[in-house]
């Protein structure tokens, strides 16, 4: 693992499926009564779906509910970029009040998506707590927000763009541009 902002090449990227298992292990102790999972579109939702499958016993034992957020209506760059052509309805099919919410994102970068997601969540109710979980922290945050649980820290240059993709067989992989 690198410690400084460096130029990583695509061949040096970790295996997303391997990191997924690491993340599942770290997440499991947090799953208790009154916890709910919320994935942020798109990568966070794919990640959540996989975590639900990997941790199905624990999820079922504690009757843990889950939902999805599309933060398009809460982004701070709407005035510059407008609405994305494709946005999906947010779906939170449970009471947010007094829940311990585990917010799931794929790549943590500036923290702006997390801010938007938290604002949106509060429009559904007042959660007891929010924990941020990300597969990767790529460094470069611009707000006093950081993930509590990550599978890997991969500091990248600002010019590099790391994203999670879902392959046709459903497995996850990283793409670096």
């Amino acid at each position: 693992m690198t410690t400084n902002h460096s130029n990583i090449t695509p061949s040096q990227l970790p295996d997303a499926e391997g990191l997924l298992k690491v993340l599942a292990q770290k997440l499991e102790p947090l799953l208790q009564e009154n916890t709910a999972l919320v994935g942020i579109h798109s990568g966070g939702v794919w990640l959540m779906q996989r975590l639900l499958a990997l941790l199905d016993d624990t999820i079922a034992r504690h009757a843990i509910e889950h939902g999805t957020l599309d933060v398009s209506f809460y982004r701070d760059d709407y005035a510059q970029r407008g609405l994305k052509a494709e946005n999906r309805p947010s779906q939170i099919p449970f009471e947010v009040d007094n829940k311990h919410i585990i917010l799931i994102d794929d790549v943590f970068y500036t923290g702006r998506t997390t801010r938007a997601a938290m604002n949106e969540l509060f429009d559904y109710g007042r959660p007891a707590s929010i924990t941020l979980v990300a597969l990767v922290n790529r460094g470069g945050r611009e707000l006093p927000i950081a993930p509590q649980i990550v599978a890997a820290e991969i500091p990248l240059q600002a010019s590099q763009h790391l994203q999670l993709i879902q392959q046709t067989d459903g497995t996850l992989a990283f793409q670096l541009d």
């Binding site: 760059d77 005035a79 510059q80 970029r81 407008g82 994305k84 790549v107 702006r112 994203q163």
Partner: peptide, 11 residues
Amino acid sequence: GGSPASQAGGA
């Protein structure tokens, strides 16, 4: 909203 043509990064 602004024009999506002027895309910038930020996740």
